[in-house]
Design a binder for these strands. Structure first.
Length: 109
DNA sequence: ACCGTGACTGACG
DNA sequence: ACGTCAGCCACGG
């Protein structure tokens, strides 16, 4: 049976499935979990994901491709650099051609 | 149990 | 098209 902690775990599971070179959004993750209205909480979960090295938190941006969580990484530019290293082009803290880079996460079964 | 906080989002004007 | 507003929900104090 689900503990409250499971929500975070599920968020991590979804994020872990985001492939290299692709990104996704907080809302998309929430929907994949069946909790469409918990986008904010997804962001909250990412805050706690910092210790986990297998959760690509930098591939999670807001719905317009804006790097809203960049300040939660070590440096202000860390998130952007990680994304650029994966082939993304970022201008003004926003991912260019975000619609193309976006990868719809698979719903939990 | 109540209240404030936030890496969000969709609806309005 | 763009800025504002108001729900939403898990967590910690």
């Amino acid at each position: 049976m689900p503990k409250s902690n499971d929500f975070f775990e599920r968020v991590y599971d979804v994020v872990r499935l985001v492939p290299y070179g692709k990104v996704t959004t907080y809302g998309a993750i929430a929907r994949a979990l069946g909790a469409a209205k918990s986008a904010r909480t997804v962001g909250y979960a990412m805050n706690a994901a910092h210790n986990l090295d297998d959760v690509p938190a930098h591939r999670v941006v807001n719905r317009v491709g804006l790097l809203t969580g960049k300040h939660h990484f070590g440096g202000i530019n860390t998130m952007q650099q990680l994304l650029e290293a994966e082939g993304h082009i970022i201008v003004d803290d926003q991912i260019n051609d975000f619609n193309n880079a976006f990868g719809e996460p698979k719903p939990i079964q």
